[in-house]
């Protein structure tokens, strides 16, 4: 079984866990295949781990755990880009910038990663005409 390493831990995954990003991530067009890693001790965070460069891993979080009414209505180009069919479910995740000072840790609500759960295809989109911030503080107190 193939494995990946995250923060010193070796984890195994299966071929069926691989999510295809046809366009890569923004600024990283070469990262086409990723796996999503859940570790109970860091939930609600997850790791988005590109298989095409084993040194890299993105910490992500479902924005709705932070902003209850987060509404990224899936832009129409995304439906086409993901070849999304009507009964597939879209998983929404946002990139986290964690810093040693927790008050400076932020989440990118402006450019969510969207994953078609059944088709296992994903992409990162930029929400147009949105007031969501690229660097929204993770802690509510800092956001006020």
């Amino acid at each position: 079984m193939p494995t990946i390493r995250i923060q010193g831990a070796t984890l195994s995954y299966e071929e069926s866990d691989i999510i295809t990003f046809d366009e890569g991530l923004i600024g990283f067009p070469q990262l086409r295949r990723v796996v999503l890693v859940r570790q109970s001790d860091i939930e609600p965070f997850l790791w988005l781990v590109p298989l095409d460069d084993e040194r890299l891993a993105f910490l992500v979080v479902d924005p709705r755990t932070l902003v209850a009414d987060y509404e990224a209505h899936v832009p129409r180009d995304v439906r086409a880009r993901l070849a999304l069919d009507a009964d597939d479910r879209v998983l929404m995740l946002c990139m986290v910038v964690m810093r040693a000072d927790p008050r400076r840790s932020t989440v990118n609500l402006r450019a969510p990663v969207l994953i078609a759960a059944r088709a296992m295809r994903g992409l990162q989109t930029i929400l147009a005409d949105s007031s969501y911030r690229v660097d929204q503080p993770l802690l509510a107190a800092e956001a006020a």
């Binding site: 923060q7 965070f45 891993a57 990139m95 450019a111």
Partner: peptide, 19 residues
């Protein structure tokens, strides 16, 4: 967004305890 993604990569270098 590209810059933000690059910044996000640094998170995996952080001590796990902080996360």
């Amino acid at each position: 967004i590209e810059a933000a993604n690059r910044a996000a990569l640094a998170s995996c270098e952080l001590e796990r305890e902080l996360i």
